[in-house]
Design a protein around this nucleic acid. Structure first.
Lengths: 200, 200
DNA sequence: TGTACATCAGTGAACGCGCGTTCACTGATGTAC
DNA sequence: TGTACATCAGTGAACGCGCGTTCACTGATGTAC
């Protein structure tokens, strides 16, 4: 057997991760387009050519983070669904989890949805996005038996949560309405109202 | 009385407008951050220093366009409301007008919501944004008498329309769902469902 | 009507800046024998 | 255990680029008399 390789690399040790962390910090501080390779290198204490040992180019680093964003979303939505049994409440929990993800992981959310990544150049992102639909469809399917209706319901709830998340992030709601608690409540109420339409 | 001034200026004639048009074209072609002063000058056939006779800086040009965006939205929403008498149908018409504005005036929509304008530096934009609420509140107020409920309803419908508009713009819906007609239908249905909650 | 003048929209050259990417290199590490 | 070697993560200098902004200027236009 070969000697065990150290998981930490040769020089820096964990540059790939350090660059990803720096990118998240930059987007958190400066907005969806605030990431530059040069500044991430500065923060990681490394020369500007170092990233190319780990990523093909600037966009590849962002795409790696966007993929993480989709995975984190999936994890959160599955957990949210598992906490309820009634489909309507599961849908509400999903909507709340959506706006909460945007608030708690803002940089990840920004990179995933607002960094302008060319999705046709990153099919794995498109796949990760539609994987989210797969997890949710059983829930809306239990509320609206017709598949088209089920998908429409899912789209409506996700869109409402997406809009609420962006409104809050961009300070477009007045005063107390721009609170995380308030936005989560609106998300849940919207989901319940839209689900209610079908159950009676 | 002084001789009438030509509305067309001295040299170029209408550089201010030409620059705004070029900026809209650029954002339309390259996305929310695709505008540069230099390229707009090239397209207007003018030197790079010319814009400073009309705008304080790059951001001022964008802010002027964002203001136009809010004005155009207001015009459209007022027209949408005027076409119906039932509050629920007015709300649905607003939601449809919202996603239609995003589709028909994509560049204006992008500049208004996605260009990352610093709103604290442009209070006129914040004012123009909340003016939209003022037009809509009577509608939701007719559906939900309690002012907080009325505002919540408005926020929910606007957020849903916002999310739908972005989903379509970013190609996040599969196949026929990513159609303008489909998205408009989802917007109308969401508005009706949310309004319905209150009227029974 | 003719002339001197003020205005001001647009010029063109220059500035400093930060960016993404390439390239030959170095030197520490782990591996084979 | 010791030595020669291959690997490969990170260096540092350089590249070309496009950007926003400034500055002294020019020259066409409209105005005053």
């Amino acid at each position: 057997m070969a000697v065990k390789r150290r998981p930490t690399g040769t020089h820096h040790g964990d540059l790939r991760n350090a660059l990803e962390e720096a990118a998240l910090a930059l987007v958190g501080e400066r907005g969806p387009h605030g990431f530059t390779l040069a500044e991430a290198c500065r923060r990681a204490g490394v020369s500007v050519s170092a990233p190319y040992k780990h990523f093909a180019d600037r966009e590849a680093l962002l795409a790696a983070l966007a993929l993480k964003g989709y995975q984190e979303q999936r994890r959160r939505y599955r957990a949210a669904l598992a906490e309820h049994t009634s489909p309507a409440e599961q849908l509400a929990a999903f909507a709340v989890a959506y706006v909460r993800f945007a608030a708690e992981e803002r940089a990840l959310f920004d990179i995933t949805f607002l960094a302008g990544l060319d999705k046709s150049r990153h099919p794995e992102l498109a796949r990760a996005g539609s994987a989210l639909y797969d997890d949710l469809m059983p829930v809306t399917g239990a509320i609206a038996p017709d598949p088209d209706e089920a998908f429409a319901l899912l789209v409506q709830v996700a869109a409402a949560a997406h809009g609420l998340a962006l409104f809050q992030q961009q300070d477009m709601l007045p005063g107390a309405w721009n609170t995380r608690a308030s936005v989560e409540e609106q998300a849940a109420r919207t989901a319940r109202a839209l689900a209610g339409r079908h159950t009676r």
